[in-house]
């Protein structure tokens, strides 16, 4: 690999001051280091933020919201009993991703920043607008079975691979960031960007901005009793989603009073459709309703290659996730989180 500088600043302020163009924040490194090995990414400087003080806590704030430090490890968050009780869908999404080893290393902030698993992005010998603006897109017309069916553009058909982010999008998380210009907050819906003509701009972060924390609002916990994340994949575990869905309902007197639905692996960001959620509100939870909402959620979808099946599968997984949410969150985390096989946990 290329030569690069490595620094491990002692404070957030020092980290932000250390940033220069071409630098990269190093969290768990589970994605960045792989890309450095292939040569797809060649940062001139790595700023290791894993030991910055104060970023590894899970806290409840006075307004009832939950704040998750950016350097909390995926596994630690998913296995935090209080967190998993309040946000079982988020925990399930986390546990359905990667492997135990990777979840121990990966950070929640890094999860938001992970790159697409589009093979043409990871391969420095393929043209990729996301990696090299204006280079072209070799994915189009190539091996497209896993590519986007929503929100893609002629410039880029890649998907966001995160499970965690699908659940966060559904629950309207907020991202706290800090840069040389100070701190600010970004609504989750605005955090990841669709490719348009500028697929290289993947997030709303300004150059040099660092994620400090995520926040889940107090009302997000009100979905705890009826929320599921479900994920289709090519093997039972340790695989990225073919399609996935996060569904959360609040039920009162046999009616849905609030609904959230986000789809994963279908676009460059978690796919949330307000009109699909609106269809659900005020209605009794029943199969026909879920079918209508799911169809609304994938409205406008179009294959970007040999992947029309993803549209139908996304619709179907949305129906299933809504159905499962209506049936109620399992008392225990399933042994196969997010799997349709949903086995009961080992005692």
């Amino acid at each position: 690999m290329n030569l690069f500088d490595y620094t491990r600043p002692a404070s957030v302020e020092a980290a932000i001051a250390a940033w220069v163009p071409g630098a990269a924040w190093l969290g768990g490194g589970t994605n960045l280091v792989d890309l450095m090995k292939t040569g797809a990414m060649q940062p001139g400087k790595l700023i290791d933020v894993t030991r910055l003080p104060g970023l590894d806590r899970i806290e409840t704030l006075p307004d009832g919201s939950t704040r998750i430090g950016a350097m909390v490890r995926n596994a630690d968050l998913a296995h935090d009993a209080g967190f998993a009780r309040a946000f079982p869908m988020v925990a399930e999404a986390l546990l359905s991703g990667a492997s135990g080893q990777l979840r121990n290393a990966a950070t929640v902030g890094g999860n938001l920043m992970q790159r697409t698993r589009c093979a043409y992005f990871a391969d420095p010998h393929s043209a990729c607008n996301r990696r090299t603006p204006g280079a072209g897109c070799d994915a189009r017309g190539g091996d497209t079975g896993g590519m986007a069916v929503l929100g893609w553009s002629p410039a880029c058909i890649a998907t966001n691979p995160s499970d965690f982010c699908v659940a966060l999008a559904a629950l309207e998380a907020t991202v706290e960031v800090q840069g040389t210009g100070g701190k600010r907050e970004i609504a989750f819906a605005d955090f990841h960007r669709l490719p348009g003509d500028t697929p290289e701009i993947e997030t709303a972060l300004q150059p040099g901005e660092l994620i400090l924390a995520l926040r889940l609002p107090a009302e997000a916990a009100q979905f705890a009793a009826n929320s599921r994340y479900l994920k289709l994949r090519e093997r039972t575990s340790y695989a990225f989603a073919l399609v996935s869905a996060a569904a959360a309902l609040r039920l009162d007197g046999g009616r849905i009073v609030a609904a959230r639905l986000a789809l994963g692996a279908v676009a460059a960001k978690p796919w949330r459709v307000a009109s699909a959620e609106a269809l659900l509100v005020g209605q009794a939870p029943e199969p026909a309703l879920f079918a209508r909402a799911a169809a609304e959620a994938v409205a406008g979808a179009a294959p970007s290659g040999e992947n029309a099946h993803k549209i139908e599968l996304a619709r179907r997984i949305a129906v299933r996730a809504l159905t499962a949410a209506a049936q109620g969150t399992p008392d225990r985390m399933p042994a196969l989180p997010a799997s349709v096989f949903g086995e009961p946990a080992h005692v």
Binding site: D123, D143, E234, A239
Partner: peptide
């Protein structure tokens, strides 16, 4: 285009 273990799948324990 899937020349790694993320893309070239073999069974995991759960399979």
């Amino acid at each position: 285009m899937n020349a790694d273990f993320a893309g070239y799948h073999i069974p995991v324990n759960a399979d």
